[in-house]
Amino acid sequence: MVIEEEHVHVELAHDPLDAKASMERVGSPKAGAIVLFAGTTRDNFANLAVKQLSYDAYPALALKTLLHIARDVKSKHSLTSISIIHRLGTVPVGEESILIAVSSPHRQAAWKAGEEALELTKEKAEIWKLEEFEGDEESVWRANRDGQMGVRVDKANLNSLKEEGSR
């Protein structure tokens, strides 16, 4: 699922993300700087070993939100181009779950814009992370806003949740 405008690209993808493609997308002879942020999935939370993570989303609304964020950040920092891609479904530990690439004539704007786009995405995009732990520990829906573990999911319920995605 992609929304593409001139120099603005937002996307939700089920396949592994391609950092080089993101950089190439925002690259331009007008831009002297490209900043790429790659968020990767961590192998632990609160000292618990994470086996894998899955992301659920409200695709239509998440894309709309990402488009607003990308447009606003591009305009505020006079970027040449911006690309925000988030992965959905199961993401094995160590792989990228989000790529944000921005380009601008000079580096300061690109640094600031990259961070701002990430923070706004984490705050607003309608995407949810489910952490599955090693052993008997129950899975947990995280909430970015308070850094807490969030709501636990019992094992019986987990498989039915992972079969969603037809919405």
Binding site: A57, L61, T121, K122, K124, A125, E126, A143, N144, G150
Partner: peptide, 10 residues
């Protein structure tokens, strides 16, 4: 209609 719990992308 959708219920939107606290989000956790990234």
């Amino acid at each position: 209609v959708a219920l939107i719990p606290p989000v956790s992308s990234g």
